[in-house]
Design a protein around this nucleic acid. Structure first.
Length: 440
DNA sequence: AGCACA
């Protein structure tokens, strides 16, 4: 018989060596928490920018007495605890240790993963993204893509400091309205760190840009308005050949594993990579061969055939627009047979290859083979997994009014619409190169 | 200004 259902009342929480701090400035950083708390004892862990407004934090002392000292001190002090001039409210946390202090997206790096909420890929041009983020320093590269979380961009800066300045200033903010199409409501930026350090941009396109290499070839199929469906002599859509086959598995009464597919497709040559994913309620797989010829042979030989007798697991094959799959070397849904098993552990730091697709204008979807290090998708900052959402693309890609050729780069930075009230620019005292935006 | 979500 406990009274566990009883709510915690104010001022009656049991002491904990973990303190809960609230009303912090939203740009508060760990160092400021430590500065505030260390007079009372040793801090073993912190978690800042907690909550939807990022204005809460947790601080964990080595022992309970230190936490009690801090709480009692400020309970009777005439000077309230402050960070950046804001009064900070301190109480015991209802937990006794800080768990999971750093997720993958919290490990600082020079590449930001930006999720632009509430927009479609066509709503925010890469030039707008470039403009917004250039306020904090030279943007080396940008890659955009769509996945379940929404429209996302990886933005590469020179260093982690510049990236952090951009993140601190823009996370939770909106892109200024005048930079967006009228139909876009709000578009909040959610920014975390990517595990990438150097994006591999193969082409300048409406989805990717390498500003360090202006001579990088333009991918003509990736320019808005240029792409037209490739049509064969018979008037049907023509699929360009590829080393990567897309297999749709029909009537899948039995589990089809990576190993099963490897066995089936190895009959025609070396299988380099396999990825299995769900698409529209069905199961599909991508199978990569070293050359187009092998892929063509396998495609013709297996098309319409069943993996198991009795019409089970019938294969329908087409060429994928992927040219090089970016898959986890070893998982239950994917395999990279080109990676020696001995080096699987070293794969942890392997960079993502931003693969371009061959000229395949009927696919207006992403030309990239992988997503970024999305929290929850690439735990521990490991190699991002191949993203099944990339496969089908979006046939009805909405054209953005500005193509990348006609877009000019305004030298001045935009103002940011925000509900907050921070007059400050250049967070943390660091003065970013370029023109910092004003916030109002 | 009121408790983290990988």
């Amino acid at each position: 018989m406990s009274t566990s259902g009883q709510p915690q009342f104010r001022y009656t929480q049991t002491p904990s060596k973990v303190l809960h701090l609230r009303n912090l400035p939203w740009e508060c950083i760990e160092e400021e928490l430590i500065e505030l708390c260390k007079p009372f004892g040793k801090i073993v862990n912190t978690k800042c920018n907690v909550g939807a407004n990022r204005n809460q934090a947790f601080v964990e002392f080595t022992d309970l007495n230190q936490a009690i000292n801090m709480v009692t001190y400020y309970a009777s002090s005439s000077e309230p605890a402050q960070v950046r001039g804001k009064t900070v409210y301190i109480q015991y946390s209802n937990r006794h240790e800080i768990v999971n202090n750093k997720g993958p997206g919290d490990v600082p790096g020079n590449v930001l993963l930006v999720t632009i909420e509430g927009v479609e890929a066509g709503d925010v041009s890469i030039d707008v993204i470039h403009l917004v983020f250039s306020a904090f320093g030279f943007v080396h590269k940008i890659a955009t893509f769509e996945k379940a979380a929404g429209f996302q961009a990886l933005i590469q800066f020179s260093d982690a400091e510049t990236a952090a300045a951009a993140r601190d200033a823009l996370d939770g903010r909106s892109i200024p309205r005048y930079l967006l199409p009228d139909h876009v409501g709000s578009c909040h930026l959610r920014i975390s760190y990517s595990a990438h350090t150097d994006l591999n941009i193969k082409f300048q396109s409406h989805r990717s840009r390498d500003y360090t290499n202006p001579y990088l070839p333009v991918n003509p199929t990736a320019i808005e308005g240029f792409a037209q469906p490739a049509v064969g002599p018979d008037g049907k859509k023509k699929e360009p050949e590829s080393t990567v086959l897309l297999a749709s598995i029909e009537n899948m009464q039995y589990a089809v594993t990576v190993d099963v597919l490897h066995t089936v497709f190895s009959a025609f040559g070396t299988v380099q990579k396999i990825a299995i994913f769900e698409k529209n309620g069905g199961t599909q797989a991508l199978i990569q061969y070293p050359d187009v010829t092998t892929a063509a042979v396998a495609k013709d030989a297996l098309e319409g055939h069943c993996i198991y007798d009795g019409g089970y697991c019938k294969l329908h094959l087409s060429y994928s627009r992927h040219t090089d799959l970016n898959v986890k070397a070893y998982s239950d849904k994917s395999r990279d047979y080109t990676i020696p098993e001995s080096s699987l552990l070293a794969m942890q730091q392997a960079p993502t290859a931003w693969e371009n697709r061959p000229p395949a204008p009927m696919y207006q979807g992403s030309e990239f083979g992988a997503g970024g290090a999305v929290p929850g998708q690439a735990p521990g900052g490991q190699v991002p997994s191949w993203d099944p959402n990339m496969q089908a693309g979006r046939p009805n890609f909405v054209s953005a009014p500005g193509t990348f050729r006609s877009q000019t780069y305004a030298p001045s930075a935009p103002a940011y619409a925000t509900g907050s009230h921070q007059p400050n620019v250049g967070p943390g005292g660091a003065s970013p190169p370029g023109q910092p935006p004003y916030y109002r």
